[in-house]
Simulated assay, not measured.
Amino acid sequence: MSKGSGERPEDEYAQAASVDDLPHFVLRQIAADLNPSDRPIAAHILTNLNDDGLLTVPVVEIARYHHVLISQVEAVLHLIQRAEPLGVGSPSPQAALLAQLEALSESSSVPAQAETAIREGMELLSRHRYLELGHLLGVSTKEAREIAAFIRTNLNPFPGRGHWGERGSSAGDPGTRALVYHYPDVIISRMNEGDETLLVVEIALPISGTLRVNPLFKQALHDAPSEKAEQWRSDLEQAELLVKCLQQRNHTLVRLMQRLTTLQREFILHGNAHMQPITRAYLSKELGVHESTISRAVSCKSVQLPNGHIVPMDVFFDRSLHIRTALRKIIDEETRALSDTEIGEILAQQGFSVARRTVAKYRSMEGILPAHLRNSGRRVASQTYILTPCR
C-alpha cells in the first residue's frame, strides 16, 4: 500500500505487537477489541505513557486532536486500563488504584471503605496517618490499617512497575536496555483456599503440542540425492539435538520449580516476610547440577504467584527480601521517625543481625527516606505501595 493512502495495513499492528515494550505489550492484548476508528486513539494513548505506565496528556487534548467526543476517548482508555498490567494508561496513581480495585471487586471481596480511602484519603495513605484515615472513613485505627494493608498488597499506583524488566539509564547508552514486559513463564496456583493447600505449578511453554522432528524428513533421507545426503543427515542430527536440549531444559525447570515451591512455600502463600534465604549454589547441589545451570534456568524468566503478582524468578534467591520487608513494617508502624541505628536494634530483637550501614542500604533499596526527612513528613509516596520494585 502506498504511503499516500490514508489507511494503515492490518499487519502493521501485528508487527508492532511483537515488540516487548509496554505500549506494544498492551496493544497485543486489546487489538482484537479495537474498532478501526479507535486505533489511532489507542496509539495516541499508548505512545504517551511514562515509565510508570501513566498517561501524560489530558483526555480532552486527545479528543480535540482526533476531533472525537471525550466519551469515545474514555471508552478506549477504559479498555486499555483493563489490559495487563491493570490500570495502565490511567491519568494518575489514584485513577490506577481505582481501576485495579474495580477489576478486583469483580472476582473477589474488597474492603467496603477501600474506594473511599483511595478517593478521599490518598494523602493520608501515603503518609501512613491511620488515625486520621480512620476518622475520615468512620472506622477504627486498626480497620484503617487493614484497609491500607489491603491496598498496599493488592494494588499498584504505578502499573508500569508491576511487571519486571530492566530499565535503561539512558536512551543513548548502547549498554542499557528498555523495560521489557513478559507473560509469566511459570504459574503457581492454589488447589483451594486452606493453609494446607497443595500448590499447582504450570510451566507456560511458548509452543503447543509436542516438539519433534518431522518423521517425513527422516523417511526422505533414504531417498536423498547423493550430493545432499551428508548435509541432510547433519541437519537431522542438529534438529534432534535441539529437541533434546529443549526437553532437557524444560525438565530442569520443572525440577527447579518443584524444589523452589517446597523451600519457599511460605513466601509463595504469605508474602515477602516469609522468604527463606537460599542460594543458587545450595539448590544446584540438591538437584545435582552445576550452579551455572540454575542461573541459566532462572535468567529472564518470571513467575506468577497465587495472588496474581508476576515476579522475576530470581526473586526466590533474594536473601535480603525478608529483612527489607521487616524493615518496611517497622517504619510503617513507627510513631516517630526512627534512626537507622534504632531500626537496626529492633531488627536484632526480631532475629536479624544487621549493621547500621546495611540498614541504610536496605532502606534506600526500598525507597524510604532518612529519619530527618521522614520526620518532616516528606515520605516517598511513589514507593509506598509498590508491590515489586523494578530490578
Rank of each mutant, 00 (worst) to 15 (best):
S5A: 13
G6M: 10
G6H: 13
P9T: 09
E10K: 12
D11I: 10
S18K: 15
F25Y: 09
I30V: 15
I41L: 13
A43G: 08
L54K: 03
A63D: 06
H67K: 12
L69T: 07
V76C: 12
I80Q: 04
P93S: 03
L98P: 03
S109D: 14
A117R: 05
A117I: 01
E123A: 13
V139G: 04
A144Y: 05
R145P: 02
I151P: 06
L155D: 04
P159V: 04
G165Q: 01
G172R: 07
D173E: 08
P184G: 07
V186C: 02
S189M: 05
E193L: 11
E193P: 03
E196R: 13
S208G: 10
R212N: 11
P215E: 09
Q219G: 04
D223A: 07
S226V: 04
W232D: 03
S234N: 12
E237F: 11
K244E: 14
L246N: 09
R249S: 13
N250K: 08
R259F: 01
L260I: 09
G271T: 11
Q276S: 12
Q276L: 15
T279L: 08
E286P: 01
S295R: 14
R296A: 10
V303W: 00
N307S: 12
H309V: 12
D314G: 00
D314I: 08
T325G: 05
L327P: 06
I330W: 05
T335R: 15
T335I: 07
L338P: 05
L347F: 08
A348E: 14
R356Y: 04
K361N: 06
K361Q: 09
R363H: 10
S364T: 10
I368P: 00
L369Q: 13
V380S: 09
Q383G: 01
Y385S: 08
Y385I: 03
I386K: 03
I386E: 08
T388M: 00
T388N: 03
